[in-house]
């Protein structure tokens, strides 16, 4: 008899619990949807600042950057993604000085580990969160970061 009563109460408890579960999903059904419809919501899209997608070399208004062409970023990159080419020039006061010719970064092989940015002694490079980097062939993924005609920012100027 006890078993029978338990059997019957179990059924009602089960029904009650199942209905409770259905109540939860019913609320979920009407809840606001989390789907983001990407190209349409471009204007309101929020991408976290920590998101790393494009390496840039910030230039100031005089078309000057902070890269001393030391090559530390190139050496630290685990993937050989960065190549820094430089040449040595002689300044007016007779000193030999290294200047940056081309700073190329290949987005196709970059793992966005951020080591280059962390190790740069001059803080010359930075990642931005501009994520729309898709292109139609991989040659287009190789970017030259220093702008044409740009030169090294003089230390004294900034101080």
């Amino acid at each position: 008899m006890k078993a029978l009563i338990k059997y019957i109460t179990d059924i009602f408890v089960a029904i009650k619990n199942l209905l409770k579960g259905m109540g939860v999903t019913w609320k979920q059904f009407w809840a606001k949807k989390v789907t983001m419809e990407y190209p349409e919501n471009r204007d309101t899209l929020v991408i976290s600042d920590r998101w790393r997608s494009e390496l840039t070399m910030p230039h100031d208004e005089n078309n000057e950057h902070a890269c001393t062409a030391c090559g530390i970023c190139m050496m630290n990159c685990p993937n050989g993604t960065i190549s820094v080419t430089s040449s040595t020039v002689e300044t007016e006061d007779g000193k030999k000085k290294r200047v940056l010719d081309a700073y190329t970064w290949n987005q196709g092989s970059c793992t966005f580990c951020n080591l280059c940015v962390l190790t740069c002694p001059s803080k010359a490079i930075a990642f931005t969160n501009d994520f729309e980097g898709a292109v139609f062939n991989k040659e287009k993924l190789i970017y030259r970061l220093n702008q044409p005609g740009s030169k090294l920012r003089e230390k004294k100027k900034t101080q």
Binding site: T25, Q28, F29, K33, V34, T35
Partner: peptide, 9 residues
């Protein structure tokens, strides 16, 4: 409907 139940569109 599946999408709606899972908070998707």
């Amino acid at each position: 409907i599946t999408g709606f139940f899972q908070s998707r569109l």
